[in-house]
Design a protein around this nucleic acid. Sequence first.
DNA 1: ACGGGTTTGTCATCCGACTGTCATACCTGC
DNA 2: GCAGGTATGACAGTCGGATGACAAACCCGT
Lengths: 225, 225
Amino acid sequence: MSAVLVIEDDDRIRLSLMLAMEDEGYTVRGAGTAEEGLRAHRAEPADTVLVDLMLPGMDGFEAIRQLRRDDDVPIVVVSARDDTHDIVAALEAGADDYVVKPVAVKELSARLRALRRRSRTTLAEPVPALRFGDLEIIPEAGEVRLAGDAVALTRTEFRLLCELADHPGRVLSRQQLLQRVWEYDTGDERIVDVHVGRLRHKIEHDPRTPRHVVTVRGLGYKLQR
Amino acid sequence: MSAVLVIEDDDRIRLSLMLAMEDEGYTVRGAGTAEEGLRAHRAEPADTVLVDLMLPGMDGFEAIRQLRRDDDVPIVVVSARDDTHDIVAALEAGADDYVVKPVAVKELSARLRALRRRSRTTLAEPVPALRFGDLEIIPEAGEVRLAGDAVALTRTEFRLLCELADHPGRVLSRQQLLQRVWEYDTGDERIVDVHVGRLRHKIEHDPRTPRHVVTVRGLGYKLQR
DNA sequence: ACGGGTTTGTCATCCGACTGTCATACCTGC
DNA sequence: GCAGGTATGACAGTCGGATGACAAACCCGT
C-alpha cells in the first residue's frame, strides 16, 4: 500500500522500527547506510523515509539533502541526539520532522500520519498534464513534450517550468522563483535569467521571441497560452 | 509578511513566544484562550498557529479540531506535557507538529519553516481583474488589456495605472502619486505628467481627449470608466 | 574510488528599453 | 490676452535582461 524506507545502521533498532511500522500497516524496506538507502529509494521510491543521523560513511544530513534534491518525499529523522543544533540542521537540510530515540511507536505513527495528511493535500494537487499550446508538461513522468516530441530538460529547467506552469499567466518574480525552484532564501537573481534562457532554447521555436516563457520587465517571468 | 497566532494562557510564556517569533521576522498575534484565538483567526487568518493544550475553558484539542473544521492552516502544539497519549491525540485532532516546553526558539523556528515549506499552498488565487470600460487590468499577470488586446506597459506606467485603479474615480495629486508609485518623498512633479502622457498614448483611443486617465486641473489625475 | 560527460552557478559584456530632465508648445479659466 | 498649469518631443544616462564562456560540482557507469 504505502512504503516506508528505514535508513538506520544499528541492526536491532532498524529491525524493531521496521517491525513496528509493519504492524502499522506499512510496507517496509530497510537500509544500513545512506548510500544504500538512496540507491533503494532511486530504484523504488518510498512514500516516507525514516532516517538516522549518525550513519557510517555519508551521514544523515547529507542523505537528506540528496533525497531532497529531486524528491519531495516526507522525511522523518529518528535520532538518539536531542540537540537543538542537530534538530535545526536536519530540518534545514530538508527533513519534515525529528523525533528522539527511543520513540513510542504510537507517536511515530501519529507523526507519520500527520505528515502524510499534510503532504497529500499539497502534492496530490499537480494536474495530470498541463498544456500550453503545443507545450505539454507531464509532472509525474518528469516529461515535457513540444508538439508531441519529448524534450530533454535538466532537473532545474524542469522544476522552473513546473513552477511557472503551476501559476499559468501569473508573473513570478525572480525572488519567488529562487525560493521555490532553488530553495534559496537569498542569492544572485541572475541565475534565474540564465536558466530561463536555457529553457527557452529548448522549448521555444524562436528563443529570441518567446511565446511561452515571457519576460515581464521589472517584475519577472510568466508562462502563458 | 506572514502571521503567527499564539494561543497560550500563561502570559509570560505567551509573551516570550511572541517575542521570539517576532525576532524571527513573523507578524505575531496572541490569544489567552481558545475561544479568543478562534475568534482572532476568523477575523484575520494567520499563516501558522501555535497552541497550548492546557487552556482555561475550551482545551487545545478542541481548539485544533475547530480550527481544522474549515481551515488548513499549519498548527503546532507547544505543550508542557511530554506524554505519548497527548501527542497522539493532538496529532490525530489535526495538529501538524508537537513540541515540548521549554523549546529552543531555533528549533521551533526551524520546525515552522519545515512545516511551511511542506504546506506552501500552490493554489492559484482567484484573479482580481479590474475593469474600466474596455480597459482591463490583471495585476498578478502584470498585464493590461484594451478591448481584449494586451498592451505593453513599462513598469512605471503599470504601477501608475494600478495606483490610479486602486482608487477609481478619486483624484490623486502628483505628490501622492510620486510617493506611492516612485516612492519619492520629494522630487519634480513633472515626472508624473510625462508618464501619464506616455500611459495615455498606450491605453487611450485618442490621447488628446482621454476617457480613462483624466486630468483634474490644479489637483491631479483620476481614473474613470 | 575513478573518470568522462553533463549540469550548474558565476561572470563579463552587450544591447535595447526605460527613465528623468528639459525646452518648448499647448490649453484653460479668468 | 495672460498666467499658471499641462502636454509633448527629444535626448542621454541608466537599468534590466540576454547571452556566451568558463570552471566547479555533480552524476553515472565502470
